[in-house]
Protein backbone atom coordinates (compact mmCIF):
# COMPACT_ATOMS: atom_id res chain seq x y z
CA UNK A 1 0.00 0.00 0.00
CA UNK A 2 2.86 2.34 0.76
CA UNK A 3 4.34 1.55 -2.60
CA UNK A 4 1.11 2.37 -4.37
CA UNK A 5 0.81 5.60 -2.47
CA UNK A 6 4.32 6.63 -3.25
CA UNK A 7 4.07 5.63 -6.91
CA UNK A 8 4.45 8.50 -9.29
CA UNK A 9 1.31 9.42 -11.13
CA UNK A 10 2.33 8.90 -14.72
CA UNK A 11 -0.19 10.99 -16.65
CA UNK A 12 0.25 14.02 -14.53
CA UNK A 13 1.36 17.27 -16.16
CA UNK A 14 2.33 19.97 -13.69
CA UNK A 15 0.40 23.18 -13.92
CA UNK A 16 2.57 26.20 -14.52
CA UNK A 17 3.67 28.36 -11.62
CA UNK A 18 1.71 31.31 -12.97
CA UNK A 19 -1.45 29.24 -13.14
CA UNK A 20 -0.98 28.03 -9.64
CA UNK A 21 -0.34 31.55 -8.46
CA UNK A 22 -3.59 32.77 -9.97
CA UNK A 23 -5.52 29.86 -8.54
CA UNK A 24 -4.06 30.42 -5.15
CA UNK A 25 -5.02 34.06 -5.24
CA UNK A 26 -8.52 33.13 -6.30
CA UNK A 27 -10.63 34.02 -3.30
CA UNK A 28 -13.73 32.54 -4.92
CA UNK A 29 -12.80 29.23 -3.43
CA UNK A 30 -16.34 28.23 -2.65
CA UNK A 31 -16.95 27.03 -6.19
CA UNK A 32 -17.45 23.32 -6.39
CA UNK A 33 -14.30 21.64 -7.54
CA UNK A 34 -15.25 18.10 -6.64
CA UNK A 35 -15.44 15.57 -9.41
CA UNK A 36 -18.81 14.51 -10.71
CA UNK A 37 -20.12 11.49 -8.88
CA UNK A 38 -23.36 10.65 -7.16
CA UNK A 39 -23.01 13.14 -4.35
CA UNK A 40 -24.39 11.97 -1.03
CA UNK A 41 -22.57 14.70 0.85
CA UNK A 42 -24.08 17.46 2.92
CA UNK A 43 -23.53 21.14 2.17
CA UNK A 44 -22.63 23.44 5.02
CA UNK A 45 -23.31 27.16 5.33
CA UNK A 46 -22.15 29.25 8.27
CA UNK A 47 -23.31 32.85 8.72
CA UNK A 48 -21.80 35.20 11.30
CA UNK A 49 -20.85 32.26 13.48
CA UNK A 50 -19.36 33.15 16.89
CA UNK A 51 -18.46 31.11 19.91
CA UNK A 52 -16.96 32.15 23.20
CA UNK A 53 -16.56 30.08 26.34
CA UNK A 54 -17.69 31.43 29.71
CA UNK A 55 -17.92 34.99 28.42
CA UNK A 56 -14.23 35.07 27.43
CA UNK A 57 -12.72 36.27 24.18
CA UNK A 58 -14.43 34.69 21.17
CA UNK A 59 -12.78 31.52 19.90
CA UNK A 60 -14.78 31.77 16.67
CA UNK A 61 -15.47 35.35 15.69
CA UNK A 62 -18.17 36.16 13.13
CA UNK A 63 -17.21 33.46 10.67
CA UNK A 64 -18.88 33.09 7.24
CA UNK A 65 -18.32 29.97 5.20
CA UNK A 66 -19.95 27.82 2.58
CA UNK A 67 -18.82 24.28 1.91
CA UNK A 68 -20.53 22.61 -1.06
CA UNK A 69 -21.66 19.00 -0.79
CA UNK A 70 -18.94 16.44 -1.35
CA UNK A 71 -15.99 18.80 -1.01
CA UNK A 72 -12.87 17.76 0.88
CA UNK A 73 -11.91 20.74 3.03
CA UNK A 74 -8.84 20.92 5.22
CA UNK A 75 -8.72 23.38 8.10
CA UNK A 76 -5.23 24.35 9.26
CA UNK A 77 -4.05 26.83 11.81
CA UNK A 78 -1.88 27.31 14.86
CA UNK A 79 -2.98 25.59 18.03
CA UNK A 80 -5.68 27.50 19.83
CA UNK A 81 -6.83 29.25 16.66
CA UNK A 82 -10.31 27.77 17.01
CA UNK A 83 -10.17 25.13 14.27
CA UNK A 84 -11.30 22.28 16.50
CA UNK A 85 -14.05 24.44 17.96
CA UNK A 86 -15.21 25.21 14.42
CA UNK A 87 -15.43 21.49 13.73
CA UNK A 88 -17.34 20.82 16.94
CA UNK A 89 -19.76 23.64 16.16
CA UNK A 90 -20.51 22.23 12.72
CA UNK A 91 -21.05 18.77 14.22
CA UNK A 92 -23.42 20.22 16.79
CA UNK A 93 -21.17 19.29 19.73
CA UNK A 94 -21.06 22.93 20.83
CA UNK A 95 -23.81 25.51 20.59
CA UNK A 96 -22.83 28.78 18.88
CA UNK A 97 -22.92 32.01 20.88
CA UNK A 98 -24.14 33.83 17.81
CA UNK A 99 -24.76 33.14 14.13
CA UNK A 100 -26.28 30.34 12.17
CA UNK A 101 -25.27 26.91 10.91
CA UNK A 102 -27.24 25.41 8.05
CA UNK A 103 -26.65 21.84 6.88
CA UNK A 104 -28.24 21.16 3.52
CA UNK A 105 -28.76 17.94 1.61
CA UNK A 106 -30.80 15.57 3.68
CA UNK A 107 -30.74 13.46 6.76
CA UNK A 108 -27.52 11.52 6.20
CA UNK A 109 -25.65 11.06 9.50
CA UNK A 110 -22.74 13.30 10.46
CA UNK A 111 -19.75 11.53 11.91
CA UNK A 112 -16.52 12.55 13.54
CA UNK A 113 -13.20 10.83 13.94
CA UNK A 114 -10.94 12.01 16.75
CA UNK A 115 -7.22 11.92 17.31
CA UNK A 116 -7.85 9.05 19.74
CA UNK A 117 -9.69 6.03 18.33
CA UNK A 118 -12.17 6.06 21.25
CA UNK A 119 -13.10 2.42 20.82
CA UNK A 120 -15.01 0.63 23.56
CA UNK A 121 -12.32 -1.60 25.08
CA UNK A 122 -14.97 -4.10 26.26
CA UNK A 123 -16.54 -4.58 22.84
CA UNK A 124 -15.00 -6.71 20.11
CA UNK A 125 -13.80 -4.97 16.97
CA UNK A 126 -16.91 -5.83 14.94
CA UNK A 127 -19.24 -4.62 17.72
CA UNK A 128 -17.24 -1.40 17.91
CA UNK A 129 -17.85 -0.81 14.22
CA UNK A 130 -21.55 -1.61 14.71
CA UNK A 131 -21.76 1.26 17.23
CA UNK A 132 -21.75 3.49 14.15
CA UNK A 133 -25.05 2.03 12.93
CA UNK A 134 -28.46 3.10 14.13
CA UNK A 135 -30.12 0.57 16.41
CA UNK A 136 -32.92 -0.29 13.97
CA UNK A 137 -32.73 -3.22 11.57
CA UNK A 138 -31.97 -6.87 12.23
CA UNK A 139 -28.91 -7.80 14.19
CA UNK A 140 -27.54 -10.10 11.50
CA UNK A 141 -27.96 -7.33 8.95
CA UNK A 142 -26.13 -4.83 11.15
CA UNK A 143 -23.28 -7.26 11.71
CA UNK A 144 -23.03 -7.83 7.96
CA UNK A 145 -22.77 -4.10 7.32
CA UNK A 146 -20.18 -3.72 10.07
CA UNK A 147 -18.15 -6.56 8.57
CA UNK A 148 -18.33 -4.86 5.18
CA UNK A 149 -17.02 -1.57 6.62
CA UNK A 150 -14.28 -3.45 8.43
CA UNK A 151 -13.24 -5.12 5.17
CA UNK A 152 -13.15 -1.66 3.54
CA UNK A 153 -10.38 -0.61 5.94
CA UNK A 154 -8.61 -3.95 5.48
CA UNK A 155 -9.28 -5.40 8.93
CA UNK A 156 -11.86 -8.09 8.14
CA UNK A 157 -9.82 -10.75 9.92
CA UNK A 158 -9.71 -8.75 13.17
CA UNK A 159 -13.50 -8.73 13.64
CA UNK A 160 -13.50 -10.98 16.71
CA UNK A 161 -10.58 -9.38 18.56
CA UNK A 162 -10.47 -7.00 21.50
CA UNK A 163 -9.28 -3.47 20.67
CA UNK A 164 -6.43 -3.88 23.17
CA UNK A 165 -4.79 -6.42 20.85
CA UNK A 166 -4.58 -3.99 17.90
CA UNK A 167 -1.82 -1.55 17.00
CA UNK A 168 -2.47 2.20 17.12
CA UNK A 169 -2.92 2.42 13.36
CA UNK A 170 -5.30 -0.54 13.31
CA UNK A 171 -7.40 0.99 16.09
CA UNK A 172 -7.67 4.20 14.12
CA UNK A 173 -8.79 2.19 11.07
CA UNK A 174 -11.50 0.56 13.19
CA UNK A 175 -12.59 4.05 14.25
CA UNK A 176 -12.69 5.01 10.56
CA UNK A 177 -14.83 1.97 9.76
CA UNK A 178 -17.17 2.91 12.63
CA UNK A 179 -17.49 6.44 11.25
CA UNK A 180 -18.15 5.21 7.72
CA UNK A 181 -20.44 2.23 8.34
CA UNK A 182 -23.56 4.41 8.38
CA UNK A 183 -22.59 6.11 5.08
CA UNK A 184 -22.36 9.61 6.54
CA UNK A 185 -23.06 12.75 4.57
CA UNK A 186 -20.39 14.60 6.51
CA UNK A 187 -17.23 13.17 7.98
CA UNK A 188 -15.31 15.44 10.32
CA UNK A 189 -11.73 14.42 11.04
CA UNK A 190 -10.19 16.09 14.09
CA UNK A 191 -6.47 15.42 13.63
CA UNK A 192 -7.20 11.73 13.19
CA UNK A 193 -3.66 10.85 12.16
CA UNK A 194 -1.79 13.05 14.63
CA UNK A 195 -0.74 10.19 16.88
CA UNK A 196 0.41 7.80 14.15
CA UNK A 197 3.89 7.17 12.82
CA UNK A 198 4.83 8.60 9.43
CA UNK A 199 4.34 5.47 7.31
CA UNK A 200 1.05 4.46 8.92
CA UNK A 201 -0.05 8.02 8.39
CA UNK A 202 0.61 7.89 4.65
CA UNK A 203 -1.33 4.60 4.49
CA UNK A 204 -4.27 6.13 6.31
CA UNK A 205 -4.25 9.25 4.16
CA UNK A 206 -4.50 7.12 1.03
CA UNK A 207 -7.27 5.05 2.60
CA UNK A 208 -9.29 8.11 3.60
CA UNK A 209 -8.89 9.62 0.13
CA UNK A 210 -9.94 6.36 -1.58
CA UNK A 211 -13.05 5.93 0.56
CA UNK A 212 -13.97 9.59 0.22
CA UNK A 213 -13.79 9.29 -3.57
CA UNK A 214 -15.94 6.17 -3.48
CA UNK A 215 -18.60 7.41 -1.07
CA UNK A 216 -18.80 11.10 -1.89
CA UNK A 217 -19.38 12.47 1.61
CA UNK A 218 -18.33 15.97 2.54
CA UNK A 219 -15.02 15.75 4.40
CA UNK A 220 -13.77 18.27 6.91
CA UNK A 221 -10.22 17.62 8.05
CA UNK A 222 -8.65 19.58 10.89
CA UNK A 223 -4.90 19.11 10.90
CA UNK A 224 -1.61 20.59 12.06
CA UNK A 225 0.12 19.00 9.14
CA UNK A 226 0.05 21.34 6.13
CA UNK A 227 1.54 18.66 3.86
CA UNK A 228 -1.35 16.36 4.77
CA UNK A 229 -3.88 19.11 4.07
CA UNK A 230 -2.33 19.85 0.70
CA UNK A 231 -2.19 16.17 -0.26
CA UNK A 232 -5.83 15.41 0.57
CA UNK A 233 -7.99 18.50 0.27
CA UNK A 234 -9.88 20.24 -2.52
CA UNK A 235 -9.66 23.41 -0.55
CA UNK A 236 -7.66 24.65 2.40
CA UNK A 237 -8.89 27.07 5.03
CA UNK A 238 -6.37 28.78 7.27
CA UNK A 239 -8.01 29.84 10.52
CA UNK A 240 -6.54 32.66 12.57
CA UNK A 241 -8.02 34.20 15.69
CA UNK A 242 -11.42 32.66 15.04
CA UNK A 243 -11.68 33.84 11.43
CA UNK A 244 -10.78 32.42 8.06
CA UNK A 245 -7.56 34.16 7.09
CA UNK A 246 -6.94 32.28 3.87
CA UNK A 247 -9.20 30.21 1.64
CA UNK A 248 -7.23 28.39 -1.03
CA UNK A 249 -8.41 25.84 -3.60
CA UNK A 250 -6.08 22.95 -4.40
CA UNK A 251 -6.43 22.31 -8.10
CA UNK A 252 -3.77 19.64 -8.50
CA UNK A 253 -5.61 16.60 -9.95
CA UNK A 254 -5.86 13.29 -8.10
CA UNK A 255 -4.28 10.92 -7.44
CA UNK A 256 -1.65 13.30 -6.17
CA UNK A 257 1.99 12.48 -6.08
CA UNK A 258 3.85 12.96 -2.84
CA UNK A 259 6.53 15.62 -3.36
CA UNK A 260 4.79 17.21 -6.33
CA UNK A 261 6.33 20.69 -6.89
CA UNK A 262 2.96 22.45 -7.09
CA UNK A 263 1.82 20.88 -3.85
CA UNK A 264 5.14 21.78 -2.30
CA UNK A 265 4.76 25.39 -3.44
CA UNK A 266 1.28 25.57 -2.01
CA UNK A 267 2.45 24.02 1.24
CA UNK A 268 5.26 26.59 1.43
CA UNK A 269 2.85 29.42 0.86
CA UNK A 270 0.48 28.28 3.58
CA UNK A 271 3.33 27.67 5.99
CA UNK A 272 4.67 31.17 5.27
CA UNK A 273 1.27 32.55 6.07
CA UNK A 274 1.07 30.62 9.34
CA UNK A 275 4.57 31.65 10.38
CA UNK A 276 3.99 35.30 9.42
CA UNK A 277 1.00 35.30 11.68
CA UNK A 278 3.31 34.75 14.58
CA UNK A 279 5.48 37.80 13.94
Amino acid sequence: MIASTLRRFEGFAPTSRANLRRDVLDREATRDITRDRTATGLGITLRGLSKSFDGGAPVIDGLDLHIPAGQFVAVVGRSGCGKSTLLRLILGLETPTAGRIAIEGGEAPRRIMFQEPRLLPWARVLDNVAVGLTRDGRKAQRRARAAEALAEVGLAEKAGQWPATLSGGQRQRVALARALVSHPGLLALDEPLGALDALTRIDMQAMIERIWRAQGFTALLVTHDVAEAVALADRILVVEAGRIALDVPVTVPRPRRRGDPDLAALEGRILDHLLDGRA
Partner: peptide, 29 residues
Protein backbone atom coordinates in the same frame (compact mmCIF):
# COMPACT_ATOMS: atom_id res chain seq x y z
CA UNK B 1 -15.24 6.37 33.00
CA UNK B 2 -13.38 7.97 30.10
CA UNK B 3 -15.38 11.11 29.22
CA UNK B 4 -14.12 10.80 25.65
CA UNK B 5 -15.92 7.46 25.33
CA UNK B 6 -19.09 8.97 26.77
CA UNK B 7 -18.86 11.81 24.26
CA UNK B 8 -18.32 9.28 21.48
CA UNK B 9 -21.44 7.37 22.58
CA UNK B 10 -23.48 10.58 22.56
CA UNK B 11 -22.25 11.56 19.10
CA UNK B 12 -23.12 8.12 17.80
CA UNK B 13 -26.67 8.57 19.00
CA UNK B 14 -26.79 6.30 22.05
CA UNK B 15 -29.79 6.88 24.29
CA UNK B 16 -29.19 7.36 28.03
CA UNK B 17 -29.98 3.72 28.94
CA UNK B 18 -27.79 2.55 26.07
CA UNK B 19 -24.98 4.83 27.20
CA UNK B 20 -25.26 3.35 30.68
CA UNK B 21 -25.26 -0.31 29.64
CA UNK B 22 -22.71 -0.07 26.83
CA UNK B 23 -20.28 2.58 28.06
CA UNK B 24 -20.65 3.62 31.70
CA UNK B 25 -21.26 0.30 33.46
CA UNK B 26 -18.60 -1.72 31.60
CA UNK B 27 -16.17 1.15 32.19
CA UNK B 28 -16.91 1.17 35.92
CA UNK B 29 -16.75 -2.61 36.27
Amino acid sequence: VDPQLVEMGRIYGMSRPELFWRVVLPGAL
